[in-house]
Design a protein around this nucleic acid. Structure first.
Lengths: 99, 99
DNA sequence: CGTCTAGCTTGACAGATGTCAAAACAGGGT
DNA sequence: ACCCTGTTTTGACATCTGTCAAGCTAGACG
């Protein structure tokens, strides 16, 4: 793997390298999309902290978010998962999991 | 995913979340085993720094090392990869992509 | 307009992380 | 025994990270 590619992919792994973010990803991936209002109460952490972790996942390209009215909805970006899976020598399937 | 499982798996992702370690893994995984003496010169980093990164990979359970005479050899632990792969690879429950 | 709720941003701070130089450790060869 | 090379450990330091409190923004509803 070239340094260039590593610089792109490493942030994705890094984003998954925190137990809170890993659980957030798992929750988001378990349904088509998930509201922040349903994610936050699942953790013993402040709202700003959850918001921070979601931002890390967004900036790593692992999830997308969209505001619809009062609430903000998050969903996974399957192409990012395919990229990671390919690196782990997996049969390239399509989407992420409920983990 | 439960908090417990996340606490076990997150360190593996975290270990891969550094570009240097990702390239080290890639190099080690590309052959049956690889000598530290062949890993170090591939980077513009000091020996101790490479050794530190290898230690992180070891402690995450991603690689094993063995000293044979003068040199130390590293190889991947396939079972760790299977575990990560299982988390990333799954039937598509993916979201409606709105982009 | 005022206000309520949901979510994000800022600022601050303790603790973790990546890096190197220097020193220590391990083997092989002379 | 001595040194020489390869690897790890230790110590130090600047930067990054996870967390919270406080403040801010966005939209809904009277």
């Amino acid at each position: 793997m070239e340094a260039e590619q590593a610089a792109v992919v490493a942030p994705m792994f890094k984003a998954l390298g925190d137990p809170v973010r890993l659980r957030l990803m798992s929750m988001i991936a378990s349904v088509p999309e998930m509201c922040v209002c349903d994610l936050t109460p699942a953790f013993d952490l402040s709202g700003p902290t959850i918001s921070h972790h979601l931002k890390v996942l967004r900036e790593a390209g692992l999830v997308d978010s969209e505001r619809r009215g009062t609430w903000v909805w998050y969903r996974v970006k399957p192409e990012a998962f395919r990229q990671l899976g390919a690196l782990l020598d997996l049969p390239a399937t399509t989407a992420p999991t409920t983990a």
